[in-house]
Write a protein that binds this DNA or RNA. Structure first.
Length: 468
DNA sequence: ACAATGGTCC
DNA sequence: ACTCGGACCATTGTA
């Protein structure tokens, strides 16, 4: 028996859990502890968190709350990492062969059309082929030359068929190297599962990050991505994957933080929030087209990031002027949002920091910088942090609470992944119903406000099936 | 080893 | 002129 005090709490009391801590220490702090130095490793993990927390929880009433949260989460994460995610390697390799075959075909076609062979993955060689050999017009520049990113290539592909093939080739190569081959290498041969490492304070806002492999940027938007996700499976035939994600959490938080009446009502009406904003932005139109809804969705997200008209226009494909008008209209329809941001920035300039609903802080020393670019960037960081950070606090708190409730109720369910506003569980089939009730109650219950958080739950044999 | 470029996620 | 918040990773090419 070991008694390890982490923070102010006694968190572990069995050898198994201490080993979990040690695994966590080794994985996340690049420190390899021998058996007789486990106490030292634990202290190191503790102090590492403690040091990072100095920046996010300096002396005030909220400090202990954040420290407690992170120290409890440390144990939860160590168990998630050690347990890992079951993975269907055979299925992944099948997908890999199919992609490889298509990539080969594309390369043949591209070389045929271009009239010579070259390395399509090389930015430098691609620039030379497109702009010098073929004489296509270059539109955007990078620091060192003429850009060949997706935006530029999409425009060119309207006129030149070969560019469309190059775009497809690039997408498939990305999928193949980063995801298919990357995930294949990440399968631990001993456990046959994938064990990521979470950086608990990986982002300045309080969010976590995931590395080796990063399970927080697995593709999600097309059929091939769905197939890759379907390789993440339940750990037995009598088990299921359960996905629980917060619906529109950042906009709901904005509604609560700003107390804007129209934004609150938009949620209380139960209507699709992007459609609701579209109707407010384009009130003079009888029908809302998909383009209008896309614009509204862009504005809704953009406002959370402290958007500029220029940035929004890049995202939605409209002109900067039209994008700026939409942003102005957004603030006119949701006036308290602008007031909230004005007050937030004023406060940040005065105190030097912004904070989440839990009191987690981000210090912004450049909020009064003489350089306008730096100052405005800092203002956008200030606007984004309370929303992104509160989201992080809330889901972290839910993770700690869920872990403890599973234990308390003897539920055969394991938390296996976190993707910012989504939790994934590996659950015994017979426990699925009870687990779903607990998951929803806890996730929705950890934060209460006028506009409540809504959790959507899906169940399936794999990660994709559970989300569908 | 490292910078630059590009791409994936929330 | 103007590059929207927060991350991680692969590849190429230069050092």
């Amino acid at each position: 028996m070991y008694d390890i005090e982490i923070g102010s709490r006694l968190l572990s009391d069995t050898p198994e859990r201490v080993d979990d801590f040690r695994a966590y220490c080794e994985r996340s702090h690049r420190y390899r502890a021998s058996d007789d130095t486990r106490t030292f490793a634990l202290e190191k993990a503790y102090w590492s968190l403690h040091g990072a927390l100095e920046f996010q929880a300096s002396e005030d009433d909220s400090r202990q709350r954040i420290v407690d949260l992170e120290m409890h989460l440390l144990a939860v994460l160590s168990r998630m990492e050690a347990y890992g995610v079951a993975f269907d390697r055979g299925k992944l390799r099948q997908i890999g062969s199919e992609i490889r075959e298509r990539v080969r075909t594309l390369e043949t076609e591209i070389f045929e059309l271009v009239g010579e062979q070259f390395n399509i993955n090389s930015t430098k060689q691609l620039q030379h082929i497109l702009y010098d050999r073929l004489g296509f017009p270059a539109s955007k520049k990078t620091k060192t030359g003429r850009s060949v990113d997706t935006e530029v290539l999409s425009e060119l592909s309207k006129h030149y068929a070969v560019v469309g093939l190059i775009l497809e080739h690039r997408t498939l190569r990305k999928l193949l190297t980063t995801y298919v081959e990357g995930l294949d290498k990440s399968v631990n041969p001993k456990t046959t599962r994938i064990h990521t490492t979470y950086r608990q304070l990986g982002a300045a806002t309080g969010r976590m990050s995931s590395e080796s492999p990063n399970l927080q940027n697995i593709p999600a938007w097309d059929e091939l991505s769905d197939r890759i996700k379907s390789c993440f499976i339940a750990s037995g035939h009598d088990r299921r994957i359960m996905v629980a994600d917060y619906s529109q959490v950042e906009l709901r938080l904005l509604a609560n933080l700003s107390e804007d009446e129209a934004l609150c009502r938009a949620f209380e009406g139960g209507e699709d929030i992007h459609m609701r904003t579209a109707k407010l932005l384009f009130w003079e139109h009888i029908t809302i087209t998909p383009d209008m809804r896309r614009m509204a969705k862009g504005v809704n997200f953009g406002v959370i990031y402290g958007i500029t008209g220029y940035g929004l226009s890049k995202m939605t494909g409209t002109t900067p002027a039209e994008a700026s008008r939409s942003i102005e209209t957004f603030y006119a329809r949701y006036p308290r949002v602008r007031e909230y941001y004005d007050a937030l920035l004023e406060n940040a300039r005065r105190t030097g920091y912004v904070a989440t609903v839990f009191g987690r802080r981000r210090y912004l020393p450049t909020i009064r910088d003489a350089n306008r670019m730096i100052r405005e960037r800092t203002e956008r960081e200030a606007i984004n942090m309370p929303i992104q950070g509160s989201n992080a606090d809330i889901i972290k708190y839910a993770m700690v609470e869920l872990s403890s409730q599973f234990h308390e109720h003897g539920i055969d369910a394991r938390m296996i992944m976190q993707v910012h506003d989504e939790l994934v569980f590996d659950v015994a089939s017979q426990a699925v119903e009870r687990t779903a009730v607990i998951v929803r109650d806890v996730m929705e219950g950890v934060y209460r406000a006028r506009i409540p958080l809504i959790v959507e739950i899906g169940i399936g044999e794999d990660w994709h099936a559970a989300k569908a």
